[in-house]
């Protein structure tokens, strides 16, 4: 007795690559890879704050003076981000609908919590990115930053960052967001390798460890900045109040 009514006979089964479940995985993995590369590059850029005001402001000005580089990257990142989110939400609901009646008793053997909460850690990242852009890029939430200039007349990114993270609430929000990001990455990195087919029994534990390692490096690489500001390791340049 068959209760499943399939319209397609097995001999005629056909799904395009992009609509297939594996195609969707690869799509998520590759867009995620570019987002990860951006996050890594952004972190290295940020860490220049430890080299002093002049270095960070020179770097920020140099990026600004390269619109041919910065705009394509911004546009691509926006597309990858939007597509990654849109597909992620779509997959979340598709997967929910794949089990119309849930179990009365649920159990999990080995799936880490990070893997089961990707949609939530992802939502946390999205919310933070929106705030972060309003905070430091569009300078909407704290318009007083726009008037900050260093002695050579460049926009004083260095002081802006310090003012930003001297606010404990902003630093806490930042740390929570970085935790979401790294929690997301800890599953994303080994998952990426599995999805593109580069995994086996020998590599599985190594990739898992690599995922955690990279997530921890990214977390500290970002969090060290508000930590240094709050502990007065990085202070405002003389004459800036």
């Amino acid at each position: 007795m068959s209760t499943v009514k399939t319209q397609v006979s097995p001999a005629q089964a056909q799904v395009t690559f992009i609509a297939s479940s594996i195609g969707k995985k690869i799509f998520m993995a590759t867009t995620g890879l570019f987002l990860f590369l951006f996050v890594s590059g952004h972190m290295v850029g940020n860490l220049q704050i430890f080299l002093g005001q002049d270095q960070l402001n020179t770097y920020a000005q140099a990026l600004k003076d390269l619109p041919a580089l910065i705009w394509p990257v911004r546009i691509l990142m926006f597309i990858f981000f939007a597509v990654h989110i849109w597909r992620g939400i779509q997959l979340y609901f598709e997967n929910k609908f794949s089990r119309p009646i849930s179990y009365a008793c649920n159990a999990t053997v080995q799936a880490p919590l990070s893997s089961r909460t990707m949609i939530f850690s992802g939502a946390g990242i999205l919310l933070y990115v929106v705030y972060h852009l309003l905070h430091f890029t569009f300078i909407t939430t704290n318009p007083q930053y726009a008037g900050l200039h260093d002695t050579v007349g460049r926009h004083d990114v260095y002081s802006m960052v310090i003012f930003g993270y001297q606010n404990v609430a902003i630093s806490v929000v930042y740390l929570v967001a970085m935790f979401s990001l790294c929690y997301h990455l800890s599953h994303a990195i080994p998952s990426f390798m599995q999805t593109i087919g580069l995994n086996n029994e020998k590599w599985e534990p190594r990739l898992k460890a690599l995922g955690y390692l990279i997530a921890i490096v990214i977390f500290f690489g970002y969090s060290v900045i508000p930590a240094a500001v709050l502990s007065n390791l990085i202070v405002l340049p003389e004459g800036v109040h």
């Binding site: 499943v4 399939t6 319209q7 397609v8 097995p10 089964a13 056909q14 799904v15 609509a19 297939s20 479940s21 594996i22 969707k24 995985k25 997959l91 598709e94 997967n95 794949s98 089990r99 999990t108 053997v109 080995q110 799936a111 893997s115 089961r116 990707m118 599953h187 080994p190 998952s191 599995q194 999805t195």
Partner: peptide, 25 residues
Amino acid sequence: VNKMVAMMDIEGFGNCTNYYECEAV
């Protein structure tokens, strides 16, 4: 591989998100 994956999708199985619960049971 093309046919089997296509049929799997048509049948309404969900997408793999690498939980590895399958392997565990």
